[in-house]
């Protein structure tokens, strides 16, 4: 079925969502066409997602029902300049925006400037073909309005910082936005001297084999498995922070990790604890280790003893002034 036809089949669902929003906020003045246009745009974006499967109209309907409709309704009303909606928005979100900005910014002035700038962007000062362009128009309702605002504040603060520090790298910039950026610094490992205990030629061979095998082992992981390792090891997210991200029982990331889990079958909405994330990580380590060993054995023809030397070499290199970098450069 054509995408247009699929969306047309969902018109009644859109009307139903609109009616519920109007009931909740009768004074926002959002026109049905404006609201449905936004839903249609989001539905087309969903349909155009790179996927081999074409969804059914039931799936699109379900997708539309998941949209944060009241938040979208408020955003569209604000985009249209409705006073009542702006009053509501200001009441519900301004103090929150200010606290987020203060949390991230280094000075009170920066925080206030960012909040002011975001308000102006949200209202929209640019006029295109006689229409004011509000930042609210880019909100689709896929996430909560509050979460979206948090992201907007974050971006705005990064832009502010970038504007005041020309030619600054992303890393440097991120380090200076919020205390948590301290972790964003990529810990480039130190160079150091070489162990003298193993013959250099054999050592080079083991190094190359180790690098090649760890690369293949990592490459063999699914994207969600790679992402978990990257969040934990590179972005320094704590277990509880990762757990927070998969708190929503409908989270696909959670679903992929739990697809073979008996506990999930029993209680799919159960809370994700830090120990659960640790288990997911351990499964990833085990998977990498298995492929790593297989690669060393089959591709590089190393014996069990030599594999142990490779493992030992890599960790020695890591523990002492790092020779692991040499693995990469050889």
């Amino acid at each position: 079925m054509k995408h247009e036809d699929l969306v047309i089949e969902c018109e009644s669902v859109m009307d139903e969502i609109f009616a519920r929003c109007v009931e909740n906020a009768p004074n926002f003045g959002v026109l049905v066409d404006c609201f449905k246009d936004s839903l249609r745009k989001t539905a087309y974006r969903y349909l155009n997602t790179d996927s081999s499967e074409t969804p059914t109209s039931e799936e699109i309907s379900g997708f539309l029902r998941q949209i944060q409709a009241d938040d979208l309704f408020l955003a569209l009303a604000c985009a249209g300049g409705n006073d009542r909606a702006w009053w509501e928005f200001d009441q519900q979100h301004r103090a929150y925006l200010e606290r987020v900005a203060r949390h991230l910014a280094r000075t009170e002035i920066d925080a206030q400037e960012v909040v002011d700038t975001v308000y102006v962007e949200l209202y929209g000062t640019r006029v295109v073909e006689g229409e004011r362009v509000s930042k609210f128009a880019t909100y689709s309702g896929r996430g909560t309005l509050r979460g979206w605002l948090r992201t907007v504040i974050w971006h705005s603060l990064v832009d502010l910082h970038r504007a005041s520090h020309d030619e600054i790298s992303l890393d440097e910039m991120m380090e200076n936005v919020g205390e948590s950026f301290a972790h964003a610094n990529f810990a480039a490992t130190e160079l150091g001297g070489e162990s003298q205990t193993i013959d250099n030629i054999a050592r080079e061979r083991y190094r190359k084999a180790t690098l090649d095998s760890i690369e293949k082992a990592f490459a063999s992981l699914d994207s969600h498995e790679k992402l978990l390792l990257l969040y934990y090891h590179v972005e320094n997210l704590k277990l509880r922070e990762i757990a927070r991200m998969v708190e929503n029982p409908a989270s696909p990331l959670r679903g992929w990790f739990q697809r073979k889990s008996a506990s999930r079958d029993k209680n799919p909405a159960s809370k994700i604890h830090e120990s659960t994330i640790m288990r997911w990580l351990e499964k990833n380590y085990a998977k990498v280790l298995k492929i790593f060993r297989t690669e060393l054995s089959t591709t590089h023809g190393l014996s069990e003893k030599e594999i142990e030397i490779c493992m030992g070499l890599a960790t020695q290199d890591l523990a002492s002034p790092n020779l692991y970098r040499n693995l990469i450069t050889t």
């Binding site: 480039a188 180790t210 990592f218 390792l229 990257l230 090891h233 030992g312 960790t315 890591l318």
Partner: peptide
């Protein structure tokens, strides 16, 4: 522990 360290160093180095 060895594989965790290896992964850790490999990822950080790749990113750097």
């Amino acid at each position: 522990i060895q594989i965790q360290r290896l992964i850790d160093s490999y990822l950080r180095l790749q990113v750097s």
